[in-house]
Every structure is written in C-alpha cells, then in structure tokens.
C-alpha cells in the first residue's frame, strides 16, 4: 500500500520559515475532495499562485530545479495547526518524500510516517547548512539513508539523525499499521471483554442510525 522508504537522493527545496502551518501547506478550500491524490498542484497555493492563477516566480517551488524537489527543508514547528492529512498528501503528490526541520508539530509528524514521508529533526544550524547546500540546486543533491540514519551532503560528509525504531521499520518495509495492529487482535478482544465484565456502566452509543 505505502511506498517503501530506504534511500533517497534528490533535490532539496529550502523554505527558511518557522511555524509553517498545514493551512499554508494546503488551504481548507482544497479539502473538499474525497480522494487522497491530486492535491499537489495546490500545495502552498497562497504562496505559489497569484489570484489569477498565474505562478509567483519568487516562490521556491516555482523555481528550477526545485519544481522537482523531493526533499523540503524548513525552520521550526513545521506542520502546526490543523490535523489535516491532506497536508502530507499534498506534499507527496507534489513529489516530496522527506521533510527536514529543527522541530515539527506532533500530528503532522505522525501523519508523514503514515504516508511514506520521512520527517527528520535536525538542529537549526544544520538545517541552515543544508539550506545553503540546497541553494546550489541540481548539482547539489542530498542523500537520505534511512537504514544507516544519515543525511549525506553534496560534499560527501554525513550527518546522523534519530528516528523511532518502530517507525523506521514500518517505513523501510512499507508496512501498513493496521495490519500490524490486527496481529494483536486477541489482546484487543480480551481488553474489551474485561471492560464489559468489570465496568459495565460504560455506555455505548445506540440510536437509530440517523437522528
């Protein structure tokens, strides 16, 4: 279901801004879809397009070679605000497979993993260095090696990063969380049975399906 993430060598787009919220990544008016795909064209819509729909040439993702970026580097608190998973869907649909920032908002961080996007926390100074690398464009590809947990700069030097072991495993294998959890179905069942036995006061929601 989800694409595996092992290594990625790609162009990185620098976006040196703090507190990029998920409303910026994908504004609410584009959430009226019932699908996951097709959101990439509206990623960062307010920054990318003028009111008449033409592109704003100064925005990084409208410039070559960053139109083909697969890595996005920002400053602190990336993905704050709304829990909309449309934000990682939009990034993925644009082509982004890895986001690097000094810090992330919790829900966005989590949502990235669920979609095969690797979020990497690195100190601000390192993000600034990587942004300088990224500015060199197509000749300065950055490599992400998830197995060995390193970012390789264009000059060949490497920077280690931390990743939760469980999430790393899920990404590398491209595994589906639900399938994993359902392997523990008997534990869930016994939890439910114990609840019913010992805490029968717990209400259920029973009503005509439609009120």
């Amino acid at each position: 279901m989800m694409d595996k993430f092992t290594t990625l060598t790609a162009i990185a787009a620098p976006l040196p801004v703090e507190n990029i919220d998920t409303d910026q990544i994908i504004p609410a008016r584009f959430l009226k879809t019932i699908q996951r795909s097709g959101l990439g064209k509206n990623a960062f819509a307010a920054q990318r397009y003028n009111e008449d729909g033409s592109e704003k040439p100064d925005f990084v993702l409208n410039k070559e070679p960053f139109r083909k970026a697969e890595i996005l580097i920002t400053f602190e608190n990336l993905g704050c605000g709304s829990s909309r998973e449309h934000a990682p869907w939009a990034l993925l649909d644009f082509g982004i497979r890895c986001v690097i920032a000094p810090s992330f908002a919790d829900i966005f961080f989590n949502n990235c993993f669920k979609n095969g996007i690797l979020p990497i926390r690195l100190p601000r100074e390192i993000c600034e260095t990587l942004m300088e690398d990224a500015q060199m464009g197509a000749n300065a590809r950055i490599t992400i090696d998830l197995e060995n947990q390193v970012v390789q700069r264009p000059d060949g030097s490497t920077l280690p990063f931390e990743v939760d072991s469980f999430r790393k495993h899920m990404l590398i294998e491209g595994l589906d969380d639900i399938g994993q959890t359902l392997q523990h179905d008997s534990a869930i069942q016994s939890f439910e049975q114990k609840r019913q036995r010992d805490e029968s006061w717990r209400p259920t929601i029973v009503m005509e399906t439609v009120s």
């Binding site: 998973e85 829900i107 949502n111 669920k114």
Partner: peptide
C-alpha cells in the same frame, strides 16, 4: 490524521 481514523475504525 485520516490514516489513523482508518486505524481506529478497523482496530
């Protein structure tokens, strides 16, 4: 997120 919505629905 929506992936977790599906996770809760199923599990």
């Amino acid at each position: 997120g929506t992936s977790e919505v599906e996770h809760v629905m199923a599990t």
